[in-house]
């Protein structure tokens, strides 16, 4: 493998990783604060893509569509939390897994009834459609670079939010001792709804960003959900920092695995990675709960 191809694949791995991070950060936050496993996270990703594609067809502006999708999934997530999922916080993980498994079936079918089984189209504006030669001889799509930038920006935003804001303080407190913030008199209900909405919106953002790259279709969230779960398990459930590193790790292992390993082995590479890491560290790389 030449050095140029290596660099290009490195970028590809990073891009896949940042995309996974957008998904994983929301999922791991929700787990860290509410101790809640949300399999329907992939459905929120799908809803983000569908909202964006629909708004794009109505307005013709990708920016408006993205913003609208972000807000749309934020509201959807908060509504979901307030109406249904809140009731499952005190249940064990098994009940949560099943309840949200039911939601996956529901959302997939709902989308199929509303938008039909055909895939939807979400285009890129001309500006983002080109490539630039970061690496000589290997033009890299501008849009993929944009995804890396957005992923890193979201990572930085979450870092600031968690370490330097009041909401972040509560989040950290909640992650380490749930009972404590309740006794502090913080309105825990609103906090939970906000955090869930934020996680949902991040998934929606990931779906929106995936829209121009991928087929916007029923079930598009199912595959990415499994990979995202692998990421947060490797990173240590509840840890945003762990999710960030694990997402990049999974992105790189998957990309280089596909290049270097025979097909069957490449398909298993991230699962082998996960099994190996959990064998050494049963709590993932950065266990959030002591």
């Amino acid at each position: 493998m030449g050095i140029l191809l290596f660099l290009e694949q490195l970028l590809n791995g990073l891009q896949l990783g940042t995309m996974l991070f957008l998904m994983a950060s929301g999922l791991t936050l929700v787990f860290g604060i509410m101790n809640f496993v949300n399999l329907a996270h992939g459905s929120l990703y799908m809803m983000g893509a569908y909202f964006a594609a629909t708004l794009f067809q109505l307005t013709g502006s990708l920016l408006l569509a993205s913003a609208g999708a972000f807000v749309g999934v934020l509201i959807l997530g908060m509504a979901l939390e307030a109406i249904i999922l809140r009731g499952f916080y005190h249940r064990d993980h098994l009940d949560q897994v099943l309840a949200t498994f039911g939601l996956i079936l529901f959302f997939n079918e709902l989308v199929r009834m509303i938008w039909g089984p055909q895939a939807y189209f979400l285009a890129l504006p001309e500006m983002l459609n080109g490539s630039i030669e970061l690496i000589p001889g290997a033009p890299y799509p501008v849009y993929r670079l944009l995804i890396i930038l957005i992923g890193v920006a979201v990572g930085a935003f979450l870092y600031m939010l968690i370490t330097h804001s009041r909401l972040g303080m509560l989040i950290r407190a909640g992650a380490s001792n749930r009972g404590m913030i309740e006794s502090l008199g913080v309105n825990i209900r609103i906090l939970f709804t906000l955090v869930f909405g934020l996680g949902a919106a991040l998934a929606g953002l990931a779906g929106t960003l995936a829209g121009p790259l991928l087929a916007v279709q029923v079930g598009m969230g199912d595959g990415v959900l499994i990979t995202t779960l692998v990421v947060i398990v490797i990173g240590g459930i509840g840890s945003v920092r762990g999710a960030f590193l694990a997402a990049l790790l999974v992105g790189l292992v998957d990309t280089f695995g596909r290049m270097l390993l025979p097909a069957s082995l490449a398909e298993m590479s991230i699962y082998i990675l996960m099994a190996a890491i959990l064998w050494r560290r049963p709590q993932g790389l950065f266990p959030a709960h002591g």
Partner: peptide, 30 residues
């Protein structure tokens, strides 16, 4: 598989005269 960036980079390196591909449904769109 949703993303083909790694494979596309290799196609660019190999510089074939033609690419023959079979990807039905969503894979084809991606």
């Amino acid at each position: 598989q949703p993303d083909y960036a790694a494979e596309l980079a290799q196609i660019r390196q190999t510089k074939p005269e033609a690419v023959f591909y079979f990807y039905p449904g969503g894979m084809g769109i991606n």
